[in-house]
Design a protein around this nucleic acid. Structure first.
Length: 509
DNA sequence: TCTAGGCATGGGTGCCTATATCT
DNA sequence: AGATATAGGCACCCATGCCT
């Protein structure tokens, strides 16, 4: 389930989905001011009569969290169940593919069609969305233009569906065909295929509901029901393209998925050309979006021209005061007009980096994007990082900010290479912990020689004094900071100068 | 009991080569 | 001199988690 759909505000996603983190995220019970007991400590609270009351209160809070989460998601579950026909007790946990499948099964029955059997199939990869190379550096006033529901719209417009596909050996039908660019697959124009019919119905229903919502107040019970309904319609519509390319799908057809992405690539390519023709500077683009220099009149004309050209809806998603790009695709940070940062893809939003590295990178981004001049940005940021390194070296960063969380995605013996989080998980198991696939393993790196995985320990099994702080400086904080500062021409030595000397002095002294 | 592909990144693995050490 | 051990560098692959 996508928790993002339920949060009141635009919050960064939850990385470790503990009960308390989810409850905090959904605004049910703030973490701030709460004493959350770490699982390894719980038995200590139980054994110590003086602290047992705290454990009991913690348990009470957990129950409140569960109730609160239930209240938040129940209406959505009801609507999802109602839409897909999946029983209510399965609707939330059912895989996305099955939600789509049951929606299609209902539609097939209405159309008087039989439901295809499941089949075993060999994996056949195909080309996906197109990602443009970003222009590295800091850009001012950038608009992000997004195609609205690009893949569903293409599938509807081109009637892309397993039942409208015309194989290469068949003659062209009299009603004509749409031919996908690059891949050449053909789809008959008429009559509407299963996918087109289902997607049109989902989108139309959602649009109608959203129209009704405008006239209601959010605290109206009907609002809650309709809002949950439109969310259910959205998740099923958005997953339909992926479903078409899923090997396990009853209505799987590679040409369907492959043609949809091909038309998508064609669309964004042409969009780039049109921007160029109209003298609009383009910074970046990914699948269904383009980042352009924001010149209001030009962009307005551009949007009109693009909608005209493709018959697809495109709209400005947001306008950044400033955006920073490195050389890498899918990684950037934008400054919004209200002063908030939107961090995308960078270490600061990844769950598998230590909190200290993420905090430092976030701080650097804030300084850099809000600075009055490049010179000020550079100086302030370098000082900021150096102060953090000093703090880290002095042992003033708490252990929990040094923990690295990674998911155990298979049983330990199934890994082909040794990895830090897997070794840490094994150490937990040897201590009697019940670790299973899907669990997030929290570990720290301790001092010593040998491979990294030999130095990875569950965070609750180490003393602070055993931690290899140098690892956190060189392999966490510095790389995360440098990712951003490299754009400003900062060298790694500038961050480490002084700190290193101290190390040498300690050695000789 | 698994919606898709595209991407960056760090660390492990295995191979090659240069050098040291042994026979 | 030739065989063997070892270290360092490199290319490649594995694994994770992100983006659309």
């Amino acid at each position: 389930m996508d928790l993002y759909d339920f949060a009141e505000k635009d919050l960064p996603a939850v990385k470790v989905k503990t009960l308390e983190n989810v409850a905090d995220y959904l605004g049910i019970m703030p973490l701030e001011g709460r004493e959350v007991l770490d699982p390894p400590d719980i038995k200590l609270y139980w054994e110590d009569e003086a602290r047992r009351e705290k454990l009991i209160e913690f348990c009470r809070d957990n129950v409140r969290c569960v109730m609160g989460i239930g209240r938040t998601v129940l209406e959505f579950a009801v609507q999802l169940s109602n839409l897909t026909g999946i029983p209510l007790d399965h609707a939330l946990t059912a895989a996305v593919g099955f939600r789509v499948e049951w929606t299609l099964i209902r539609a097939a029955r209405q159309r008087g069609e039989l439901v295809p059997k499941r089949a075993e199939r060999r994996h056949m990869p195909y080309v996906g969305g197109m990602v443009l190379k970003p222009k590295p550096g800091i850009h001012e006033r950038i608009a992000v233009l997004d195609y609205k529901s690009l893949y569903p719209s293409i599938m509807i417009q081109k009637n892309v569906s397993p039942d409208t596909y015309v194989p290469p050996d068949e003659p062209e039908p009299p009603e004509g065909v749409n031919v996908a660019p690059e891949v050449g697959h053909r789809f008959r124009r008429e009559p509407p295929g299963l996918y087109k019919e289902v997607l049109s119905a989902l989108i139309e229903a959602r649009d109608a509901i959203r129209e009704r919502l405008k006239a209601l107040r959010p605290d109206d019970p009907l609002y809650r029901i309709l809002d949950a309904r439109q969310k259910a319609l959205k998740v099923v519509a958005n997953a339909t393209y992926g479903y078409a390319g899923w090997l396990g799908a009853r209505w799987y057809l590679k040409p369907v998925a492959e043609s949809t992405t091909a038309w998508g690539r064609y669309t964004i390519k042409r969009t780039v050309e049109m921007a160029k023709e109209m003298g609009i500077e383009l910074i970046y683009g990914d699948t269904d979006s383009v980042f352009v220099k924001y010149e209001p009149e030009k962009v307005e004309r551009f949007l009109k021209a693009v909608e005209e050209e493709f018959g697809l809806k495109i709209k400005p998603d947001e306008i950044f005061e400033r955006v920073l790009f490195t050389e890498a695709k899918k990684r950037y940070c934008g400054l919004l007009p209200d002063g908030r940062l939107e961090i995308v893809g960078l270490e600061a939003v990844r769950g598998d980096w230590s909190a200290v590295a993420k905090k430092v990178q976030r701080g650097v981004l804030e300084i850099v994007l809000k600075a009055k001049s490049p010179r000020e940005a550079r100086e302030k940021a370098v000082k900021f990082v150096r102060d953090w390194i000093a703090k880290l070296k002095a042992g003033q960063v708490p252990l929990k900010d040094l923990v690295i969380w990674e998911e155990l995605t298979r049983r330990p013996e199934e890994y082909k290479v040794r990895a830090a989080h897997v070794e840490a998980a094994k150490r937990m198991m040897r201590e009697g912990w019940d670790v299973s696939v899907g669990d997030k393993i929290g570990y720290v790196i301790v001092k010593g020689s040998g491979k990294l995985y030999e130095r990875a320990w569950p965070y609750f099994m180490v003393d602070y004094s055993d931690i290899d702080l140098d690892y956190y400086v060189k392999k966490q904080v510095v790389p995360a900071a440098m990712r951003v500062l490299k754009v400003l021409g900062v060298r790694e030595e500038e961050l480490l100068a002084g700190v290193e000397r101290k190390g040498l002095m300690a050695f000789f002294g």
